[in-house]
Amino acid sequence: MAEQHDTLESLMRQAIAGDKRAYADLLRETSRFLRPFLTNRINSASEVDDLLQEILISIHKARGTYDGLRPYKPWAYAIAKFRLQDHLRNHYSDQLRHAVELSEVENNLAEPVTETDLTYESISGEIQKLSPKQAEILEMMHHEGYTAKEVAERIGMTESAVKVAAHRAYKILRKVVKR
């Protein structure tokens, strides 16, 4: 851990002079102050870890653009924001790519996907074979009795994303049950 009298700027100056320990301390301090910044903007802890690693690599790549003479944090935050924007852009474009057409959902909304002879308990084995997220959503909606909106609030997704995930799970289960 960096000693208290070592500011981030002086750590970077020492790092530029070739002090590897100072550089490691600087990177640790950087990850320490960037973690809450990312946690406030991203729900998933694993995504925060991945992004933090990506930011540290970017800081390492861009270290030549920092001279140790101006404040360090604005420089580090500028890189962190840049990578965060990239991450969010990729995340949302990925979601759009995998999104189900609204018309496809609407066609199935009238289908009695929940009004069936089957109970949650009778197919719980099949439910456990779904992805963890889908299984969690079905458990909350059909076992614990939460609405889609309540599930969305609890697991940090949008209501429509919960409905889409549930819809996909129903389709998988329907195929399994028909077999």
């Binding site: 320990r21 990177l27 640790r28 990850s31 540290l56 390492h60 270290r63 030549g64």
Partner: peptide, 16 residues
């Protein structure tokens, strides 16, 4: 993972 990465980056001798 972060600690491993920090150590790896600190010992990276690629000149900048």
């Amino acid at each position: 993972n972060i600690e491993d990465l920090v150590i790896r980056l600190a010992h990276d001798d690629t000149p900048s």
